[in-house]
Amino acid sequence: MRIRVNGESREVDQASSLLDLLRQIGLEARNLAIEHNGEFVEDDRLGEVTLNEGDTLEIVRFVGGG
């Protein structure tokens, strides 16, 4: 199924969780801020959120430096 991640279309397996997707794209689940269909996702719910066809994700990982 296709979803949109940071504005770009992406193919993911059916019934993937958000945590599965993070593993798939190689993002460590630290210092993340994620919106799933416009709703903020708390860190402890990453494994519970199931992705559906057409979902929109905004995933930001903060790295140090300033």
Binding site: N31, L32, A33, F40, F62, V63, G65, G66
Partner: peptide, 18 residues
């Protein structure tokens, strides 16, 4: 947001959004 530390960057972003 002009921090150096990534966790502080994240926490400020989440706090301001919420």
């Amino acid at each position: 947001e002009c921090f150096d530390d990534p966790t502080m960057k994240r926490d400020l972003t989440v706090a301001v959004r919420r």
